[in-house]
Design a protein around this nucleic acid. Structure first.
Lengths: 213, 213
DNA sequence: GAACCCGTGGCAGCTTGCTGCCATCGGGCA
DNA sequence: TGCCCGATGGCAGCAAGCTGCCACGGGTTC
């Protein structure tokens, strides 16, 4: 079933949100959608009486950009929801309720954003399975905030990858098209920001922070 | 569009598989489905002329249970496909082609397995985004196979900890009460068993395998 | 233009890491 | 005892990594 526009979404699916029995899972890029709908309050209510059901929310790191959003997420966690942060963009909002309904958000169009609501078990199951897989390996909000990765620039990331490849400085520098001296400067800077006393230690840190790809 | 049974699936979607232009992604528990369809050969053909498009396959670790399957996966990789292993079960097979079609498999029913084929952009986009998230954090087949931790003896673990502490070889050797030469032998052995080409890489591996603390 | 800052890269000298070679030591074994 | 074997450690030489110094080029500022 296709739904066009936020208003229709609210009227058509509003009752679903208050009928959650066991589980409410949601994947999204950030918290904009619901704030735009003014549905933040509804979500809050949803969480409030969540004694009976489980709430899981998976966001991209973009959700942490604004201070306001961070506060809201913290509040959610405080009320019993589980929040995790995924490494990818999650451009399409996805909601699965009780493994019975799935709501997928499309892209913005002139006529308003398009949503798809479905109860087909195949569809719900497939989406749920993928959500599960993404959820399983995402990092907990708390851990993510604690881990506050020292955010490296693109340059450092390349160096990191080169280091991880096991190449010597010489070949790595050549591959990256920079001089040996500069490459080593980069490495030194990297060790510095990672607060590592040796390359080995830096490797461990890099691994911990999941800076590899 | 709902499809009931494997036969119908083949006739209805066969042409899609040969029309892949850019990308073919697939998430599944294991390789049974396609072998059951005798479609293994078709998949092989698909990969063969994959010069133009990209193939990504995400499986649960169940796909590695059988020797035969492992061989098939290796073959896939050899032909240019990228294979990763997810931590979850992935009970529902999912295929996305060129970000235009999505095929979802349901559960077995008396009348045959049920499949859903859709081209709705919202749906395809949503599924694709979730796939992307799951993919991003899954581990590469190669890394997964290698990851069977090489179980180190107590000695190596001490060395590992010393390395992780960031100390130089000299101080580390002194602390461990062994000669510099021996310490370095240990380190060399360690790099060998970790299959690392540099200390940095060894650090990453050690982190991956959680051999710290 | 002159003065300046900043990132880069070459050079040099030093430290650290790596490894082949050989001497040594201690433990089994005939 | 004499022999073998594996582990150890010293040594030496080389490779790799580290860093201070200075020069060059491209911006910016005055």
């Amino acid at each position: 079933m296709t739904i066009r526009g936020d208003l229709e979404l609210l009227t058509r699916t509003g009752h679903l949100f208050s009928s959650v029995r066991e589980e409410f899972v949601c994947a999204a890029r950030d918290l904009d959608t619901w704030s735009r709908l003014g549905a933040r309050q509804a979500a809050r209510d949803l969480v409030r009486d969540s004694g009976t059901h489980q709430i899981r929310k998976l966001y991209s790191s973009a959700a942490l950009a604004e201070e306001r959003s961070r506060g809201h997420l913290g509040e959610l966690v405080g009320r019993g929801a589980r929040v995790r942060i995924a490494a990818t963009a999650l451009p399409h909002e996805t909601i699965v309720i009780d493994r019975r309904f799935v709501i997928l958000a499309g892209s913005d169009t002139p006529g308003g954003r398009e949503y798809t609501l479905s109860t087909a078990p195949t569809l719900v199951g497939g989406v749920y399975a993928l959500f599960e897989a993404a959820w399983e390996t995402a990092t907990d909000l708390e851990a993510f905030l604690r881990g506050e990765r020292p955010q490296l620039d693109a340059d450092s990331r390349t160096v990191l990858r080169a280091l991880g490849s096991g190449a010597t400085d010489e070949t790595a520098a050549r591959d990256l098209g920079m001089s040996l001296r500069t490459y080593r400067r980069r490495v030194a800077e990297l060790l510095d920001t990672l607060d590592a006393g040796s390359r080995f230690q830096a490797g461990v840190r890099a691994g911990e922070l999941g800076l590899n790809g």
